[in-house]
Nucleic acid binder design. Structure first.
Lengths: 346, 346
DNA sequence: ATTAGCACTCGAAGGAAAAGAGTGCTAATA
DNA sequence: TATTAGCACTCTTTTCCTTCGAGTGCTAAT
């Protein structure tokens, strides 16, 4: 990443100070504050001049004539990029918090969101891993009663899906055995995309009389595993109330709504997964976000891996004056943690 | 239900008018308004006298000396009880809305919450049916790989649960077959409560060498089906912003938080299911609610049945000045709808 | 190049005044 | 006797004005 701004060291330091201070207070910051806050030993007047320059360059903004300055999106962006360039590593007590409830995957992810929300004081989301490229591991058909069979589908990573299929005729044990054999000899090891029409036709052919059932089952597999199933767990949505600039207007409403409906959060997940750089961490500031209702926020996302192309997204949504440093550290830690938990589980 | 208030017809009419008007406007209502609003043809002065009486009797309240009156909890209670006494029936287009997405149970319930929220403009919740008294229908153990077997548990009503159990030794086909036989000869038809320690001991006895696995599986069944799993779907939490008396203070925060964490909503479900009257509809006004953070709200709940003792809860949370009439109608309709959908499915 | 000093701007906070809504009480009325 | 008109009173809400303070930009001095 190139940090190609035309700023000299002093301007950079002042900008840094403005942003950092604003992150803490949430109030516009004035020249006198900076004069004391930094170790530059400059008078407020000098700072004022520099700040006027920074404003011309578009890094900071004056909400009104006689207020201090707040960072612009461009300013935040520079700040974040600088952070990105640094390397950090730090493991905190999140580990224990996480492992406490590590049970089934949905529990883990729910817990992850919660831990993250508590640790950062922002709203958080965690998406269940998408499994487009994931492979089938095992299929089992069982007779539940006369007209219903249950299909249990296990994917790599032990993701389990069920589907009840209704059948016309009652099937005897032999046939069930045959169907199970058929499915389990050909399908395991295949990914969803590989199961195409030709494949399905071939299987149906082999199934003979039961071709219809095989069709139904395969159809069920397809529809069950479609990405429409993309689960998203959220926590700490009410944290937005902690930041006046978000809770004032009705933007809080929009954000919380997005969190409840989850529809829009999928946008973020999609977008995040489509790019891949920055050690998997991405930051959307203000209007950069894929979701319009969050234009007054910043969104920080990270990708976690589950092997075999399965990946999910962790996201933090907060005010633009987000504590990027802390958030990115925490996110990185959690990411690593999830990677580990899931890989150990297998 | 006894409507044992000591109110004459005129007082009742005035109280009714006050409440109804307040429900619409959200503002305290004065004597002049009532004078015009009702068909009593009384002057504001007379109304004033009556209202003073009603206040003495505790049915209405004056927020401050020179304001109109608003209903007290006791007033609402009377109003609601009167509504309860009426019979209503009405099927609206909810039916189509519901069936549109009727697929798997969680989808149905999610959709139900949404439809309800849109139809009423309040926050809504729907709990998945609890299955304490529900019976096992079918169990299937399958080998997934060397050290893992998957237990698929199907309950009456086709509720499916999965659990991966890790085993020490690899099990051969014969043993798997034997275990499946064992489980499926004794367990189906039993309810969770019936599977007690003696039962477990007997099964372990029969399992011989594999007693440990049986133990694990049974334990898994127990823990998988425990009410901690009680899923709750919510929608329209942000509707609270539509009612100033809820959105002003930080009570909106508390309510929305309760909706996100869902923990507290369980209280409501529990409480609702423990009682059974009023055609399954219950109303908690203000402090009557089981959840403290909703003391400024009213909560209306209904119970839907799924046969075999399985039942779930639908709830609406809104301001005390809720449109009880509409809500109860809608709730009753949806309740019926859910009953039907689920029974047809089986 | 830096800084001190100062006039200026503009929002926030405070407070008085006016407006408005509604009451309770009394006296008049049907 | 029940109802109503009238009026003084109370209390909130709104509006407008003032003051205060934080911060600026500019100029002149260092």
């Amino acid at each position: 990443m190139e940090l190609n701004h035309g700023l000299d060291d002093r301007k950079l330091k002042i900008l840094h100070a403005v942003i950092k201070n604003y992150l803490e207070t949430g109030e516009p910051v004035g020249s006198r504050t900076i004069s004391k806050y930094t170790d530059l030993n400059l008078s407020s007047a000098t700072i004022r001049n520099e700040m006027a320059d920074l404003e011309d360059l578009g890094y900071i903004i004056q909400p009104h004539t006689s207020a201090g300055r707040i960072p612009s999106d461009k300013g935040y962006r520079l700040y974040v990029d600088m952070l990105m360039a640094e390397k950090e590593q730090e493991v905190i007590e999140m580990r224990e918090q996480m492992l406490e409830k590590a049970d089934k995957m949905d529990k883990i992810l729910k817990q992850a969101a919660k831990v993250l929300a508590v640790n950062t004081n922002y709203a958080t989301m965690v998406s269940a891993p998408t499994m487009n490229r994931n492979k089938l591991k095992f299929i089992q058909l069982s007779q539940v009663d006369e007209h219903q069979i249950i299909a249990v589908i296990v994917m790599e990573g032990n993701i389990i899906k069920n589907k009840i299929v209704t059948v016309e005729e009652t099937l005897n044990n032999e046939i069930m055995l045959k169907l199970n054999m058929l499915l389990n000899t050909s399908l395991p090891g295949m990914s969803i995309e590989e199961i195409n029409l030709g494949m399905i036709a071939a299987l149906k052919e082999q199934a003979g009389e039961q071709s219809e059932i095989i069709g139904d089952v395969l159809h069920a597999i397809g529809s069950t595993i479609q990405p429409e199933d993309l689960e998203i767990y959220t926590s700490g949505a009410t944290n937005v109330f902690k930041y006046p600039e978000l809770s004032d207007n009705h933007s809080a409403q929009e954000i919380i709504n997005a969190f409840e409906e989850k529809q829009m959060l999928q946008e973020i997940v999609t977008q995040t997964l489509s790019k891949e750089d920055n050690h998997g961490i991405q930051v959307y500031i203000g209007n950069e976000t894929p979701v319009q209702s969050m234009k007054d926020c910043s969104v920080v996302t990270a990708t976690y891996e589950l092997g075999e192309g399965m990946q999910g997204t962790i996201g933090i949504i907060g005010p633009k004056r987000m504590d990027y440093e802390h958030v990115m550290k925490t996110l990185k830690t959690l990411m690593t943690e999830l990677d580990e938990i899931f890989h150990k589980q297998e």
